[in-house]
Write a protein that binds this DNA or RNA. Sequence first.
DNA 1: TTGTAGGCGTTATCAA
DNA 2: TTGATAACGCCTACAA
Lengths: 340, 340
Amino acid sequence: MTTKRARAKRATVHDVALEAGVSRGTVSRYVNGERYVSAAAREAIEAAIAKVGYVPNTAARNLVMQRTQAVGFIVHEPHSLFVEDPNIGEILLGANARLSEADHQMAVLIVDTERDTERVARYLSGGLVDGVVIVSARADDPITRVVERLQLPAAYVGHPPGAASTASFVVIDNRGAASAITERLAATGRSRIGMIAAALDRDSGADRLSGFRAALGDRFDDTLVEPVPLYSYSAGRDGMRRLLERAPDLDGVFAASDAVAAGAIEALKEAGRRVPEDVGVVGFDDSAWARRTTPPLSTVRQPAAGLGAGAAELVLDRLRGEDTPTERRLDCEIVWRDSA
Amino acid sequence: MTTKRARAKRATVHDVALEAGVSRGTVSRYVNGERYVSAAAREAIEAAIAKVGYVPNTAARNLVMQRTQAVGFIVHEPHSLFVEDPNIGEILLGANARLSEADHQMAVLIVDTERDTERVARYLSGGLVDGVVIVSARADDPITRVVERLQLPAAYVGHPPGAASTASFVVIDNRGAASAITERLAATGRSRIGMIAAALDRDSGADRLSGFRAALGDRFDDTLVEPVPLYSYSAGRDGMRRLLERAPDLDGVFAASDAVAAGAIEALKEAGRRVPEDVGVVGFDDSAWARRTTPPLSTVRQPAAGLGAGAAELVLDRLRGEDTPTERRLDCEIVWRDSA
DNA sequence: TTGTAGGCGTTATCAA
DNA sequence: TTGATAACGCCTACAA
């Protein structure tokens, strides 16, 4: 009688069956709401359950059923996502809502450190979830490999390079949105519009440039595009400096992200330009940056809840036997503030 | 051969044993890193595992071991938390970090709708987690009842009314923080300092008032305390109006939360008072409100990561056999901006 | 050092 | 409509 492992031993189907004077099979059928349970048996079982305090053990059920009705939701780079990105919460809620409707439990798994990576990979391998939604995966991630090896039904929010080839994707229409906000900028009467194009080696970066180009049509000018490596503040500032040197008469800028736009605004002010009077600036993402700049940014807002819901739905589709991985593209919304 | 249920059948210990020409027991011992596995056996098993692609089934292991090395993290009212409260992300990360060190997996469970409540309660009942951290529980919540009934080791962030009596708590030192920020406000030379005291029926509300009173000592004036029911913007605005009517010569205000403070500032401006020139205002929480007001609020910041880590630690303690529920109180930090 | 066999708590099959 | 009984995949005495 150690006091240490005193965790009350929980009642099982067996106990209920004994108490009710029926077989375990009958108890199981009752618990799962099947027919073929006589009124007498039902009553006896109900009383027995109440008496012994029976609670079904999901783990055991999962083992024999070979499915868990649970879906993992993996969050990488949690710091930048949770602290800086206002979207993650909505993505989470969107996914949960959709899974909940389908009576699936969502379990959010956070990958912060190296240790986390391994532990989460084990968790996924262990048969504790039927599928998984992945946000912000890194290229060539161990988790991606596990997902692929296990052929675990998966859907990514975004389309990271090196994502499991067996997975589905929900992405935003970067090209369309870039095009739309560029047109809106042009409509404010700007005639010399440039772009600070970031991360051209990624789908998102390339697509935003492509949308920019499409919106401008004939008026597109190669020399007004300044490529920078990252979606960062400093890249935006440096890029803007170079662009301004090359094209001092510029009166509009599409920055490939809000962080880039914030850097660009800094560089513009430093060069004595007023925003939006002299130069109109628009960004992308509607991240925290967008409200921190002065003036606040006109930018593109992602349909965050829709991304989560969409990813959840794609996983559920796979769970239902849909065998073909899909890519779904969602439209964005433009939020117009004061920077253009 | 239905193509529908084509989920590749995964290799088991049994398969590995067969392939390696040893018994299941030996394979199991190898997998769990026990001694008493000969070099020959080890090699054969390693080869076999690689060949058949064996991955241990955690669910089965959990069943027989009667523990999961997993802890649930339950978040209620996810909308207000994820979208408005900047703290939740840090709480999550703090908890995850601590659990990760202890080699436990954290699974975040979101309770949004009625359905979620039941499903999460089932999840907890089902033996899928060894313990649970709970954020922002509601009074008399089904989840709380489940936790209590199962005697599931639990720790709350905050101390909601009706929390399971068997649980531990991590709270912030509301009284001390209120006292500290009031003193700081007084130190700016304010002599007629009032308080808009919200939610006096809750621990947090009562403690903040108590701290305010303590800081003022002899100078405390009953008539300068205006009680309001909720931590809300409108409550703050209305309360400030009433307070101002009663004490037009007031030159400092401690609002029980940032939202309340924002409302108070609104009312002050409406009455022609300048902040901070005529009246200094301080809030509590360092929520999104604090940066949205003009001027930005001087306020109290919660040690969010510490709250998460603390709660995780208390759960781990219980898991190790610590049988007494504890309450841990954490200090806050004052962030001084421009509103006072 | 290894193999055998029983059990963790369910569900599922098949007679009865 | 019910009751045995065999899985599910794993761990763990105990015996060898």
